[in-house]
Write a protein that binds this DNA or RNA. Structure first.
Lengths: 199, 199
DNA sequence: TCAATCTTGAAATGACCGTTCCAAGATAAG
DNA sequence: CTTATCTTGGAACGGTCATTTCAAGATTGA
């Protein structure tokens, strides 16, 4: 009997993700969302709830669509260190060029804003960090099995290090950091963890 | 002939720094500033200009009062790697406990927000990064002179790495990262750069 | 076709935003 | 003490905020 929605909630959410990703939640008004999505306030509120609910949904979708697929690929890659290197290459590429250049990472951005006082948002940040760290750890264990790690390198602590390094890349890329410089920095980190090239 | 100010602009600015540092500029209203400082809108606008001017002044003051003294101490320390280690210990201590626990770094936070679209703010972020990197580099060169660096370690790239790591620490500490875990991560990074403990 | 039920458009809500204005108060040189 | 000049308090400004409301439109089962 009822009417059906005249739009695709998932496609709309992708548009909303882009808004919150680029500008943050505090600097994005509902009017911005209305303008960008083309639908009106009533549909928005009926579908997603208020602004904070909309932000939470967008952050969840960012994790599912943007982060987790990349993490999964990293964790399941059997090559070891080259997989980690490729992960960072893709990261830097995405952060410094193309449609999302200088947007940083929506999760990293959320760390720095007032939005992280929301317990559910905080939970998503922790989940993101855990998943990134574990994917990195899996790749490093694989690397260790293939003798790619330096004798003293601890996969556990190295996974933490590389995860934090990714946050640093995300942050500095938003301020316009040079891609080549970021690549060189990452290479130095991997070199320090892996078997020493030049002794 | 004229009247004089009935307050100390520098002390007031310290209060404003704390506001913007903790909540960010977008989530802080002029009313918050009025309430926190105790002075009046007129005095605020007459002394500092508008909100954006006030934020810029606060960010400048954060650099001068909070960042640069620490950078200077790091750059001039003659001990090498222990100086770097102490820098990170102090950083993690400040980020995870005491008055400013879970506030992150005002500059790191600014990277992630919409405030970095202001050219002057962007300039301050770059200046901060340059100064951090150069202090780190100076300490690493000192370390190298004393034979504390691993044979393959490049002070230049390692300085970049440690600077990005600091941003990662700042970010994750805001989401409640555990101090012990952060310390362990930093130790692993320094171990990878320095002469290998366990071979 | 009718009626039930959801969606949609557009206007309205009150609260808060950053900023301005002006009269009253304070200061110090003459 | 007068007067010029700045500071201060507090009200007022138009604009924008997130959210609500409600009538009109659309859809589907009976």
């Amino acid at each position: 009997m009822p009417d059906i929605k005249h739009f695709d909630p998932d496609a709309t959410l992708d548009t909303v993700v882009r808004l919150f990703w680029r500008q943050g939640v505090a600097s994005t008004g509902i009017q911005d969302v209305v303008t960008a999505t083309g639908l009106n306030r009533s549909s928005l509120y009926a579908t997603y709830g208020g602004k904070q609910d909309l932000y939470r949904a967008a952050l969840r979708r960012y994790l599912e669509q943007r982060s987790q697929p990349v993490f999964r690929r990293l964790a399941e890659d059997e090559r070891g260190l080259p997989a980690v290197s490729e992960f960072f290459d893709g990261l830097i590429e995405a952060r410094c060029s193309g449609e999302y250049a200088r947007w940083g990472c929506m999760v990293s951005n959320a760390h720095a804003g007032a939005e992280n006082s929301d317990p559910e948002v905080r939970g998503l940040l922790d989940q993101h960090h855990r998943e990134l760290r574990e994917a990195m750890y899996a790749a490093l264990v694989t690397a260790g099995r293939q003798g790619q790690l330096a004798p003293g390198a601890d996969p556990d602590a190295s996974a933490d290090l590389l995860a934090l390094l990714a946050y640093g890349v995300n942050l500095r890329s938003r301020a316009g950091a040079d891609a080549a410089s970021l690549r060189k920095t990452v290479a130095a980190a991997l070199d320090a963890i892996g078997v020493r090239a030049a002794a």
